[in-house]
Design a protein around this nucleic acid. Structure first.
Lengths: 108, 108
DNA sequence: ATAATAATTCGACGATTGTCGAACAAAGGA
DNA sequence: TCCTTTGTTCGACAATCGTCGAATTATTAT
């Protein structure tokens, strides 16, 4: 019913997207969306309450990074990949970067 | 005299650098350093007090983005370009991105 | 109509942040 | 030695942030 407002791609700012991606939870969300395509908030596992999760989705939405559409009782969210790639090339690659897992190999 | 501590390159985190770059002042600082090489805090013009400017340099330093060395009464600061490029490829290109200046052209 | 599901909104809270002026410290030059 | 320059540190302050539980809305299923 309430139709989620999204900023135009041109409204995205560098400090804005940096800010949005400065929280580990939100990086995790974007990473999940990049890997999983369109997901409901429900389908992104986080160790925070649902209120907090909803907040993080809203922050990403307001920054212009994700697009949310209502479908039934769920909110399907996806990364605005093309627009981000056009405006901030390489940004999403950074998000996808593997965390430095300290594997137990002798030489890497 | 007091010898500025810097984190190892491996201590840099994605949320950490994003956080550090989420402030327009700090983006401006990094941009100036990328264009101007090694600069004293003094040589980066910002419309904030010197206390605040010192704070912003410290935040960038703690995030691992810049390296500061004492020279006389000045503190010469430079971007840790190679380490950042190795760990977060493309990050500095984002910082260098031109702000969307709305020029008055008819077609761009 | 009732219940269940999914998500948002509303305070509230402690923590962090950006900002400043004032005080301080270190180095260099008069 | 004293003064200037450069930068840091120290409260302090308002603003923002991340977090939560509880209440609310909206949709679907029974």
């Amino acid at each position: 019913m309430k139709p989620y407002t999204h900023p135009a791609a041109s409204e995205m700012t560098l400090p804005g997207v940096m800010q949005a991606l400065s929280d580990p939870c939100r990086i995790e969300i974007v990473r999940a969306l990049l890997n999983g395509g369109e997901l409901a908030c429900n389908e992104v596992e986080l160790k925070v309450s649902k209120a907090t999760k909803s907040h993080h989705f809203a922050v990403l939405r307001d920054a212009g990074l994700v697009l949310t559409r209502s479908e039934g009782t769920r909110c399907m969210t996806s990364v605005r990949r093309e627009e981000i790639d056009r405006r901030f090339p390489g940004l999403l690659d950074l998000v996808l970067m593997e965390k430095p897992k300290r594997t137990r190999r002798k030489a890497g």
